[in-house]
Amino acid sequence: MYKESLRNLISGARPCESFETMEGRRLNMPMPDERCDLCGICADACTGKAISVDGGWSVDLGRCVFCRDCYDACGYISERPAPHYALNREDLVFAAGKEKDVEGRLDDSRVADLGNSVHIRELDTGSCNACEHEANAMSNIFNDMSRFGIGVKASPRHADVLLVTGPMTRAMLTAARKTYNAVPDSKMVVACGTCAISGGPFAEGDVVGTGIGDTMPVDIYVVGCPPTPNGMVVSFVKALGLRH
């Protein structure tokens, strides 16, 4: 193992994946073809109530847990690559047959202070811990987020970005507010995963509202349950305009 590491060091070869590969590896979202007659089988099969057929077919990626039950229920639905993130909650709702590019970039005024690096403080507000595993995986050798200038900080006072997972349980409310207030201004909040965006499977449990948006303003919505680590890295790089 050490020999191999040494060889990599000498050759200068990085074991990590290129940004393009990371960007290309996406989660899949459902999309019906033109045969769809809005019968509603898919909406009934969807446990997260992400699919709606009232007034045209649409899927809300903020509620989708990517379980693929809808593909099993209806043969007219096929897989389509999903976006990694979006900047507005409404952008996560996709209507049938409409392509749109939602992976925008935050205003220059928001990211001007960042230079070319961004520091993250992770805040768990009641997640199921899969999102934590994926957030940890951002720093493994495949994704290697530090090459884009992304790092994790131990204290919110040193952070630019709050990466929030979980649906905001009542018990975490005070701690979450304090953490949010401790991040210095011109901060950004990232809602990571379905339950941070909309409460997901826990929306009717002991949580505050639907997702973290009811407690703090959200700037970036990272899609997935859990989002992939490469998706998280790509979201940071593209939304904050980091060099890659």
């Binding site: 997640s127 979980g166 826990f202 449990g205």
Partner: peptide, 10 residues
Amino acid sequence: GYTYRGIERM
């Protein structure tokens, strides 16, 4: 209890 979401009740 910080991540109590009430799964048993749900």
